[in-house]
Write a protein that binds this DNA or RNA. Structure first.
Length: 425
RNA sequence: GCGGGCGUAGCGUAGUGGUUAACGCGUCUGAUUGUGGCUCAGAAGAUCGUGGGUUCGAAUCCCACCGCUCGCCCCA
């Protein structure tokens, strides 16, 4: 019988890593509260059409990476590959258009992509996703980025920069893409194979190439940020002014391109300054003023981001943020002998009633072994109930740290006395 | 999807063709009656990722598969 292992690209989050997850989730909750975002939870899977229509069925995420399956009833479903279309679907389904606008929502949600795993890239990962629907105000763009920036700061992540770009609005961008293709067409044959493919599929990506053969042409290529439509330019500048006012470290990146079709105007990524790897990006997002309509709703502007919790944790560790695992117990009950089991259980319940984390030792093992366990559990107090104690109706309180001596107390008052000891120390 | 590196007890490693695969950490037990941490002693724990092949003989060489990892692509 071959041993089972977790599916490729997935991972178990063991107790030692839980403090990191807890810290991130706590910070997420707090930063969302500080910015007026409300939590929404959407299902792990959706109608596949949500993403085919929403994310765009020529994007890599949908075309090559989405987990699609038919359930027993014949419905075509997809494991959520990215958050935004799912939240927009919920926004429409629940009539959030009639809530006070704009609507600020966030979630932490598992995402699934059939991709080749690498460090920081998994087939299942978790994203903190935040979306604002119903506002076209550039200040909202800045607020969203500021929230992301604050989150990283709260978690001790330094040495990162926001790369900011603008993809203009959809119509002017189409015109720009034509100009870009005209520029590249004459020397198409001299470009890298990748770039030749991009020329047809996603010409904006030509500007993103790192291939030596493409670099000379890239330099002189027309840049979208240099020729934005007046409305988009004004928007872009307003976002920058607001980010500067908020103290966010950002750099305008004329070559920033993102892989989802629905973006317009503001796009951004957060990258570590020392990380050239493509999967170094820890968060990114942008504005999607056309997405709600794509999914069958009324014209509604929107903007949001996703940031990968696994990557945040990797970045925290790179920044030397360390968490000690929380002790498993405050009080550890050592017991042995006839009738000690029920006494231990009664005492444990009394301790827990008082809010004290209590663990009962294994009565079949020696005092020595149980006390070792108490120590390993990080308990500050051991409470010993042996045969002698049981006969006298007492328990021994043995401090596991500090100077004080162990003391006998009546069994019925043991919980109270333990609480006093723990609160004092 | 393409190319490179790696895979030996729970974890980290040594061992590169020749006895019962070694060490550290961890786990368990004990160091005279029932007392933790430090120390000491002992024990358990490995079909050497899986399957096939070469060989008198394979952890060691070859092939395939699985997984991890690095780069590309793409993304968080």
């Amino acid at each position: 019988m071959p041993r089972f292992q977790a599916p490729r690209g997935t991972q178990d989050v063991l107790p030692a890593m839980q403090p990191y997850w807890q810290a991130v989730l706590d910070a997420v909750r707090e930063v969302a509260r500080l910015h007026g975002f409300q939590r929404v939870d959407t299902p792990m899977f959706e109608d596949a059409g949500v993403f085919e229509k929403g994310s765009g069925d020529t994007t890599d995420i949908v075309e090559k990476e989405m987990y699609v399956f038919e359930d027993r009833g014949g419905d075509r479903l997809a494991l959520t590959p990215e958050g935004t279309p799912a939240i927009v679907r919920a926004y429409l389904e629940h009539g959030m258009g009639s809530w006070p606008q704009p609507v600020r929502l966030y979630t932490t949600h598992p995402m699934f992509r059939y991709d080749r795993p690498q460090k920081g890239r998994y087939r299942q990962h978790t994203q903190f996703d935040a979306e604002v629907l119903g506002s076209a105000d550039p200040l909202v763009d800045a607020e969203v980025i500021t929230m992301l920036w604050r989150l990283y700061g709260m978690l001790g992540i330094r040495g990162i920069t926001v790369r900011l770009g603008s993809l203009d609005d959809l119509e002017p961008r189409r015109a720009y893409v034509e100009r870009l293709k005209e520029y590249y067409r004459p020397f198409l044959g001299r470009l890298s194979e990748d770039s030749q493919r991009r020329f047809e599929r996603n010409p904006l990506r030509l500007l993103d190439s790192k291939d030596e053969r493409d670099l000379p042409y890239k330099e002189a290529a027309p840049k979208l940020v240099d020729q934005l439509s007046p409305a988009a330019r004004e928007h872009h500048e307003a976002v920058q002014a607001a980010l500067a006012a908020a103290g966010v470290r950002f750099a305008v990146d004329p070559l920033l391109v993102r892989g989802l079709d629905y973006y317009n105007r503001t796009v951004f990524e957060v990258v570590p300054d020392d990380d050239e790897r493509a999967q170094g990006t820890i968060g990114g997002g942008g504005r999607y003023d056309g997405l709600v309509e794509l999914l069958g709703g009324p014209p509604t502007p929107g903007i949001g981001f996703g940031t990968g919790i696994e990557r945040i944790i990797l970045e925290m560790q790179k920044n030397g943020v360390v968490f000690e695992p929380a002790p498993a117990a405050e009080a550890f009950i050592v017991h042995r002998g006839e009738g000690s089991g029920p006494a231990a259980v009664r005492l444990a319940a009394a301790l827990r009633d008082r809010g004290i984390a209590a663990v009962i030792g294994e009565g079949g093992r020696s005092f020595k072994a149980q006390l070792r366990s108490a120590n390993a559990a990080g308990a500050r107090l051991a409470i010993i109930i042996g045969e002698d104690e049981l006969a006298k109706g007492v328990a021994l309180l043995k401090p596991l740290e500090g100077e004080s001596e162990q003391a006998a107390v009546p069994l019925e008052q043991a919980a109270e006395a333990a609480e006093a000891r723990l609160r004092a120390g």
